[in-house]
Amino acid sequence: MELGLWQVWEGGWISAILRGAAITIALGMASMAFGAVIGVGCGLIKWARIFPLTLAVDFYTSVVRGVPELLIIYLLFFSSVEFVARVAAAFGYEGLAGNGYAFTIAVVAIAAISGAYSTEVVRGALAAIPSGHIEAARALGIPGRRIFRRIIAPQMLRIAVPGMNNVWQTTIKDTALVSVVGLQELMRAAFVGAGSTRHPFIFYFIAALVYLAITLVSQGGFDWIERILRPRTRK
């Protein structure tokens, strides 16, 4: 049985896979950051039930969470390709469908997905803050903005961490889907390597190991953050 370990080493595929892993992590982090911004904004709207906006947010979260990620990625990629090519042509660039463009659209797609899940996490965290805390702050005459900054935001942050951990884990796994439209991330690097050496097993196995390493390391990171944010209580 020939697994092709030698071809992986000799063909320089290890560095290609590591480069892909770096892109996967960068993509995951950028999407997670934008997703968190979307999540806090939409989560606040959903929590406070700001009338017309809350309907839009409800529509956004239920569509994105109910429709397969792959379909959303196809929608954003296919509909943007033509548009971007036209804009690029207007400015005198030809063939701008390079990696930078793919990366940008990938961030938009994954952030939109991640943001929908973050919204639910933030809304849940806000709902978990005891209303007595906010009432007490109001009774003390603390202005609204400071209530948010000193009472609501710190508690929301702490309660939301475990949920955000879950969102991060799904986000990093969702980045693999972008490979189907050609961004050179980890999964795509494995796909190209598998195709050109005809040893798919070893390539996908290595890709799986790298994803596992990423998720396990970040799990440790989140456990650490959770420990730091845990309130100090008297024994």
Binding site: Q169, A190, F203, Y204, L212
Partner: peptide
């Protein structure tokens, strides 16, 4: 840990293309 820590797409490709080899 293994199945929740890796993307479904990788598992799918590993089974379909990898095991098929």
């Amino acid at each position: 840990t293994v199945f929740r820590g890796t993307p479904l797409l990788v598992q799918l490709f590993l089974f379909y293309y990898g095991l098929g080899q």
